[in-house]
């Protein structure tokens, strides 16, 4: 047992060699600045390019991989399968969601643990879209793993204690929700419609659609919508921070338009997979 460097010293305090020039936060936004370029040189109302592919995990009933810029997510769907023994009888199906992060998802190495907040929000965003009556007494499990979290790579979080506040930004949740609904469709779970989700950050006078981690750390308010584009119904709406009414209306409209477009991309990915199967 003498040569075990891997486990004996893990408790030792380590730190990331952080770029010292980043210690003071550079002003990202001054007053009515509108010419500011976003870190990934997008326009304010421009989403990151979205990419979906089904069938990422063979051992699952259905799965999908999504990539939005640097955000990379895998969602696996298992079931419908037997509910846990301790569960009460239910004549409609159950949905069970779990979101976890890899240790290397964030710029500073994290714990890679389950994200309870996102798990319950994912559940609530999908619940309304799934026809639970089609699988009575059983459970459908939706598990998501965030391989890499959005945000430009050069952006290093200044202090570890500030990571907590960033951790609870809406962050990768819209990607997880959209990816999960593609995975559910891949698994053949009956749904009223696909769920597409988009978020908007409010920075001063400007609205930034599909923000990355860096932008979220400067935001005054955030809005996230999960909706079923074809039915024009919202399954989840989360608003935090400071919003004026006209701003809020504008952001809503922006999100709904973007999710309609996102829905089309998700649909075309599923169509492609289905036509590949037929050949």
């Amino acid at each position: 047992m003498a040569a075990k460097p891997s486990t004996t010293t893990t408790a030792k305090a380590t730190y990331s060699p952080i770029d010292p020039t980043r210690k003071t936060r550079p002003p990202i936004f001054s007053g009515s600045d509108v010419d500011w370029l976003r870190p990934d040189s997008r326009g304010f109302h421009q989403c990151r390019p979205a990419f979906f592919r089904t069938g990422a995990v063979n051992s699952a009933s259905g799965s999908a991989y999504a990539e939005f810029g640097n955000t990379k997510v895998i969602v696996s769907v298992f079931g419908p399968r037997e509910s846990k023994k301790a569960m009460m009888y239910s004549n409609i199906g159950r949905l069970n969601c779990n979101v976890s992060y890899t240790t290397f998802a964030t710029p500073i190495r994290g714990q890679g643990s389950d994200h309870k907040d996102f798990s319950s929000m994912l559940h609530k965003a999908l619940e309304g879209a799934i026809i639970l009556e089609t699988f009575p007494k059983t459970t459908v499990d939706v598990f998501a793993l965030v391989l890499e979290s959005g945000g430009s790579i050069r952006f290093l979080v200044k202090q570890v204690d500030e990571l907590d506040t960033l951790w609870f930004a809406v962050g990768d949740l819209p990607v997880v929700i959209s990816c999960a609904s593609v995975a559910l469709a891949d698994a053949g779970i009956m749904m009223y419609d696909l769920v597409a989700s988009v978020s908007v950050s409010c920075l001063g006078k400007n609205l930034l659609i599909d923000p990355v981690l860096e932008e979220e750390s400067y935001q005054d308010g955030s809005l996230m919508i999960a909706c079923m584009p074809s039915r024009y119904e919202v399954t989840q709406l989360t608003v935090t921070g400071e919003w004026s009414t006209p701003h809020f209306n504008e952001a809503m409209q922006l999100c709904l338009d973007a999710s309609a477009k996102l829905g089309k991309i998700m649909r075309s990915c599923l169509k492609e997979a289905a036509s590949d199967e037929q050949e």
């Binding site: 460097p5 891997s6 699952a60 895998i74 969602v75 696996s76 499990d141 598990f143 998501a144 793993l145």
Partner: peptide, 11 residues
């Protein structure tokens, strides 16, 4: 020092 972790996430 090298620390190795192997994870099997539910996915």
């Amino acid at each position: 020092c090298v620390s190795i972790d192997f994870h099997m996430p539910p996915i």
